[in-house]
Design a protein around this nucleic acid. Structure first.
Length: 685
RNA sequence: CGCGGAGUAGAGCAGUGGUAGCUCGCCAGGCUCAUAACCUGGAAGUCGUUGGUUCGAUCCCAUCCUCCGCAACCA
């Protein structure tokens, strides 16, 4: 398969420039893409790694309106923030540009125009909801109105949250703009559509027959789309932000963001090649059948990269098609879905500040838990474990052992290699096997497994040193120790190569320690990477442990975010049905003084109170022990319902009444009390 | 009622129609060159339930149960 191709164009999904990037982006797309590209470069293959920000579409305009700044300011801010984060994480793009560039506007515009001129697009006029005040057409989700079924006042255009009905905007009674409340009218609008249905047969052949090797999640999703029957898809929108539709009479219309964004891969390649002639013509990377095109994306992008974009390329006619589209599932954070708006994420820019120089630790953890086959979970505890138990204990420690021994015995000079024992040879062979396995994994986009294999090299090294016991042998056979250390050092040098795609920063540092300038994937497994007599630099630790308090800070931060979200989402509950004064009079609410208060054994939530109600004493049980220590409440005056029928608990405990408490937004409980002390038994009126 | 995803050792995850595997954790032993790191060994799972297909199912089919998500944005 790979022999067919002379070069590879690798693209990574264009992140949307309306917020910073987070660990989900990294785990899903950019780290695997970067590993792949670094690997290909190490193999001396021709490869370009293309990225950029996606800066068009509605959400950036909404964000700009919300923050009171221009759309350009929004995309500028996030484009540079994102670009910077990627750079600092070692995502080795050959270019990271943006879809607001002139090159892109022209190329996307020409692309559309060619399809238009050749009648590859169809034109349709439909009626859509329009806000006459803001002069905009609204998307389903931004339309609200009365639900036709349950008559809830504020159902969405696509669904009523109250009764769960699936709706279309047309069904809503009195539709209005969800953002500003303006009434909506229906208005005709004309758009251009990409007739995917015309390509149905071709797509079925191309994907279902010719690309059975695609990942199951990708293949499966494509199949389900194809089985459902493709329909024409609009490629233009009524908006004022984007690339103007290059057709007469199309004022106020722009290319749909999903039409222009993937063309951004091409534009950015062009921008790169135009500025670096040594890379050849950009067309070579997009039109030569000997070029292999690979798109790295997240699962939400599958349909666009496997169906829509290939159809666009096919319709255009000049372009090659993707050879593979490795897509990952999603990453969760501490069991919760990552969310930009709820701020539930580990933002890369914040990580870089709070945990400086620990990019490789995150890259490692994300790859070790990569959501390749199903959604996975990122936890800070796991991050700490990966770092301390694997990077530090296995990899870092092996390197340190080899280098320290070299310092100790040979003043940091690589010793000469004597005759190899069978065990030496066996160890080196294992090393070569691992190389093959890593390659197989990487060629098949199994990054999680590939990294695990790489880590195996360090395990082999640790075992080798442990089995050889050079610190013992040095006393009896110093010549033999030279060979042992020589081999250990060669293994170390090999690790620098093997980990380069995964952990570029520590690989770089390791190479500096062992003064290794040149390296390539092909030399992985060889035993002469560091010649005898070479003086090595002074060793330092490759990785350092992450202490509990560092992790706790991150957990506390997330906990605070969770709380803030709950508070933000708090809405007082609806008021209950009206009751009469007579109804109210039936309730006998009194003030009681807490005489005793204690936990109830085996009942987690319960506190048992002894209350002075003015006439007698009574026992009341209340489920608030998570929020109060019993001592805190003794002596306090609390409100309670005095005439509630008593209730018996399983263990025989009887509660004679109910203490009134308020439940806060975060489900914490606050007991009610009185402003000034009153006699026990006072009525609450 | 619904849709999607998931249920495999204490935790996190692989996996396959034919004696169940990895990492971490745990226990025991070894070692001391090394960041209390490393090496060896061990315990621990009736692969969610119940049926079915099969010579044989963790893997196929069906049923049921449980958990998570199902506004927008987003990989």
């Amino acid at each position: 398969m790979e022999k067919k191709f002379k070069r590879t164009t690798v693209t990574a999904a264009l992140p949307y420039a309306n917020g910073p990037v987070h660990i989900g982006h990294l785990a899903g797309v950019y780290v695997p893409a970067d590993i792949y590209v670094r690997y290909l470069r190490l193999k001396k293959r021709d490869v370009l790694f293309i990225g950029g920000s996606d800066e068009h579409g509605v959400p950036v305009t909404i964000r700009a309106r919300k923050e009171g700044i221009t759309v350009q300011q929004v995309v500028d801010r996030y484009h540079y923030l994102i670009k910077d984060s990627f750079e600092k994480f070692g995502i080795s793009f050959d270019i990271y540009s943006r879809t607001t560039s002139d090159v892109h506007h022209k190329l996307a515009s020409d692309f559309f125009r060619k399809l238009y001129d050749e009648d590859k697009l169809i034109q349709q006029t439909t009626e859509q909801f329009y806000d006459e005040e803001t002069h905009e057409f609204l998307t389903d989700r931004n339309i609200r109105g009365e639900c036709p079924r349950c008559h809830a006042a504020d159902a969405y255009g696509d669904q009523c949250e109250k009764c769960g009905a699936t709706l279309s905007p047309e069904e809503l009674i009195n539709p209005y703009n969800a953002i500003n409340g303006n009434p909506l009218v229906k208005k005709q609008t004309t758009h251009w559509y990409l007739p995917l249905d015309r390509y149905q047969n071709w797509l079925e052949q191309w994907i279902l027959q010719e690309h059975k090797e695609w990942r199951p999640n990708v293949y499966g999703q494509c199949k389900s789309w194809l089985d459902g029957g493709l329909k024409p898809r609009a490629v233009t929108r009524d908006l004022d932000w984007g690339i103007p539709v290059p057709v007469e009479g199309a004022e106020g219309k722009v290319l749909y963001v999903w039409f222009d964004a993937p063309i951004g891969y091409i534009s950015n390649t062009k921008e790169l090649c135009d500025s670096k002639p040594e890379l050849g013509k950009w067309e070579t990377w997009w039109k030569d059948p000997e070029t292999r095109l690979v798109h790295f994306i997240g699962k939400d992008n599958i349909v666009f990269h496997c169906i829509v974009f290939p159809t666009m390329l096919k319709a255009h006619g000049d372009y090659i098609l993707p050879d593979n589209v490795p897509s990952n599932e999603f990453l969760n954070l501490e069991d919760g879905k990552i969310s930009t708006s709820r701020n539930w994420a580990v933002w890369l820019n914040e990580y870089l500040e709070e945990l400086p120089n620990r990019q490789d630790e995150l890259r490692y953890t994300l790859t070790a838990n990569a959501p390749e086959t199903k959604d996975n979970n990122f936890t800070w505890k796991n991050y700490q474990d990966c770092t301390n138990n694997e990077l530090v204990a296995i990899y870092g420690n092996f390197v340190n052992r080899a280098l320290q021994l070299t310092q100790k015995y040979y003043e940091g000079v690589v010793p000469t290699c004597g005759e190899l024992t069978d065990y030496d040879k066996q160890t080196l062979e294992e090393f070569a096997d691992v190389k093959t396995r890593v390659e197989n994994c990487l060629e098949n986009f199994k990054f999680r497994d590939a990294q695990k294999e790489a880590m195996n090299l360090a395990r082999i090294g640790n075992k080798y040193i442990a089995d050889m016991e050079p610190w013992k042998v040095i006393k009896t056979d110093p010549e033999r120790v030279k060979t042992i250390i020589y081999i250990s050092l060669q293994l170390t040098a090999n690790l620098a190569i093997a980990f380069e795609p995964f952990l570029p920063f520590s690989s770089q540092r390791l190479r500096e320690m062992i003064c290794m300038d040149e390296f390539s994937w092909e030399s992985l497994g060889s035993t002469d990477l560091l010649p005898a007599g070479k003086k090595l630099a002074k060793p330092s630790l490759l990785f350092t442990k992450i202490e509990d308090d560092v992790i706790q800070v991150q957990l506390d931060k997330l906990e605070a975010i969770k709380k803030a979200n709950q508070e933000q989402n708090y809405r007082a509950k609806d008021i209950k049905e009206t009751i009469t004064y007579e109804d109210f009079q039936k309730l006998d609410i009194r003030v009681g003084t807490v005489l005793e208060c204690e936990r109830v054994p085996k009942m987690k939530k319960l506190l048992k109170f002894r209350i002075d109600d003015g006439l007698n004493q009574r026992t009341i049980v209340s489920g608030i022990s998570q929020f109060y220590e019993p001592e805190q409440l003794v002596g306090k005056q609390v409100l309670f319902i005095a005439n509630l029928a008593s209730r018996q608990f399983k263990n025989g405990l009887v509660s004679e009444g109910m203490i009134l408490s308020a439940e806060n937004f975060d489900e914490t409980i606050s007991v009610t009390t009185v402003e000034h002390p009153v006699k026990p038994g006072s009525q609450v009126l």
